[in-house]
């Protein structure tokens, strides 16, 4: 078995191209010079760690798909836009969000305004740049809220089983049957919408998905022998849950995080489109309805924010597909 793997590895090594070969040769030799006692490690017998090998295979498969790479590139561009927004945008946040330029309403793209202007003469390019940060903040925080509570609930109900499981799952089934977005709209309308409330509500809506996923994953992991071994050794329930089960049942969660962020970006777009955004902050969906009324004379004002929403959501969906291909061998080459 080990022999075959070594053989495969050497085959792979020979198929590398010239550039990477030479660069790796340089790095190999530099290691000997600069790292003390490095050669000693190098002289040890080459025992291949099987898990290590599987990980490498995963990474290769994951990167094999060009669509995944597209997704990663989109996400990195979007995240860097969110981080460096004030460097990229030509106008200040105040000008883009609150200012009123009386002569500039619905102006076509020009030297001063690369993507044209929208309502109140505000620069569309600056608006979509500044909007990136808040959409991402809402999506990431809401996902982390639903992640923490969903994992906790799912793990407890999957690990203990019995009436605890029945009780938690009944509640979760009930929450799942609700039309979440409609509830979010009602609550945001009643209590004066703001970004913080959006985060909390979207986070709560996401809890049941993660709880269900975690529960099924935990129930699978619980049956393995190393869990019974840990029990025999005398590990506490807490230790088994956090040290043994959690790392081994995290893969499906990791896959769905990426999908969920994409889904949340669409939900945020719908909410802000309907006017449940935050007047203090720019969100992509905020002005689409005003721009839609001016579709005839200013198509750019509705096109660019919606293009931004689609691109961001698409990036996360593509990454999710790639992650699923890499981490879930059952789905390889099957997922669209």
């Amino acid at each position: 078995m080990v022999q075959e793997e070594i053989q495969e590895r050497t085959e792979l090594r020979t198929t590398r191209n010239l550039v990477s070969n030479s660069s790796s040769w340089i790095s190999r030799n530099l290691k000997f010079l600069f790292l003390p006692k490095y050669r000693l490690n190098q002289l040890k017998p080459d025992i291949i760690n099987k898990m290590d090998y599987i990980k490498k295979r995963h990474n290769r498969n994951w990167l094999k798909s060009p669509l995944t790479i597209v997704g990663i590139v989109i996400i990195s561009i979007i995240v860097s836009i969110a981080v460096f927004d004030s460097w990229i945008a030509p106008y200040s946040y105040k000008d883009a969000a609150f200012a009123y330029f009386i002569d500039d309403w619905w102006k076509p793209p020009s030297h001063r305004h690369p993507l044209g202007t929208g309502l109140a003469g505000q620069d569309i390019f600056s608006r979509i740049i500044y909007g990136t940060r808040y959409s991402l903040i809402i999506a990431f925080t809401a996902v982390s809220i639903s992640l923490v509570f969903g994992i906790a609930l799912g793990m407890v109900s999957g690990y203990y089983g019995g009436w605890v499981d029945t009780f938690i799952m009944r509640i979760i089934d009930i929450i799942l049957a609700f039309p979440g977005l409609v509830f979010a709209m009602a609550i945001l309308a009643i209590w004066q919408s703001s970004i913080e409330k959006m985060i909390i509500i979207l986070g709560i809506i996401g809890i049941p998905y993660y709880a269900r996923l975690m529960r099924s994953s935990v129930m699978k992991t619980k049956e393995f022998e190393y869990i019974s071994a840990a029990k025999v050794v005398g590990a506490s329930n807490q230790r088994i849950m956090f040290r043994h089960i959690l790392p081994n049942s995290f893969d499906p969660i990791l896959i769905s995080i990426s999908f969920d962020i994409g889904r949340l970006i669409i939900s945020i777009a719908i909410l802000s489109f309907l006017g449940f955004g935050d007047y203090r902050y720019i969100l992509w969906g905020d002005r689409i309805i005003d721009a839609a009324y001016n579709m005839w004379n200013a198509p750019w004002a509705s096109f660019w924010p919606s293009a931004m929403i689609i691109t961001t959501a698409l990036g996360f969906m593509l990454l999710g597909d790639g992650l699923r291909d890499a981490l879930d061998p059952r789905y390889q080459y099957k997922s669209i």
């Binding site: 977005l181 979010a184 489109f273 309907l274």
Partner: peptide
């Protein structure tokens, strides 16, 4: 379906369909 219901409200708002979504939107405003 839950997300689709929310999306339906936005569709009615944009396309001026005087249905349930428009009623709900008006009520929230």
């Amino acid at each position: 379906f839950a997300v689709i219901l929310g999306g339906m409200i936005a569709v009615e708002r944009l396309y001026y369909i005087p249905g349930m979504g428009w009623l709900f939107y008006d009520a929230t405003q």
